[in-house]
């Protein structure tokens, strides 16, 4: 966890320093996507090797969707209150 935090902070400082050097900046988004591809491929591979997960993929997907709907509804509901309290009419 500490390593992750340190790397994130290091990245932000380096990003801040190079933000006006567009040629260097342009290299990073493709690298991020590449890293995400590798990680998700590896996650897939460990999932594929796990028979419990593979046999229950449908029910896992259903549970995931229920959680998504719960999270979205909750956050949208609270944001509606915040909108009515602070934003409506001000903008």
């Amino acid at each position: 966890m500490l390593t992750v935090l340190a790397l994130l902070a290091l990245g932000i400082s380096i990003g801040y320093l190079i933000k006006n050097r567009e040629k260097i900046c342009k290299c990073f988004p493709p690298l991020v996507i590449f890293a995400v591809y590798i990680l998700l491929f590896l996650l897939g591979a460990s999932v594929g090797g796990n028979k419990t997960v593979i046999c229950n993929l449908y029910s896992l997907g259903l549970k995931a969707l229920i959680l998504t709907l719960g999270g979205i509804s909750g956050s949208v509901f609270v944001s509606m209150i915040v909108y009515k309290l602070f934003f409506k009419g001000n903008k």
């Binding site: 790397l7 290091l10 801040y16 190079i18 988004p29 991020v32 890293a35 990680l39 460990s46």
Partner: peptide
């Protein structure tokens, strides 16, 4: 995959800093 994750966190940081 841990190193790949570290690499990703660093890159995400750079993107945020340069945004």
């Amino acid at each position: 995959s841990t190193y790949a994750l570290y690499f990703l966190m660093f890159l995400v940081g750079v993107e945020i800093g340069a945004d």
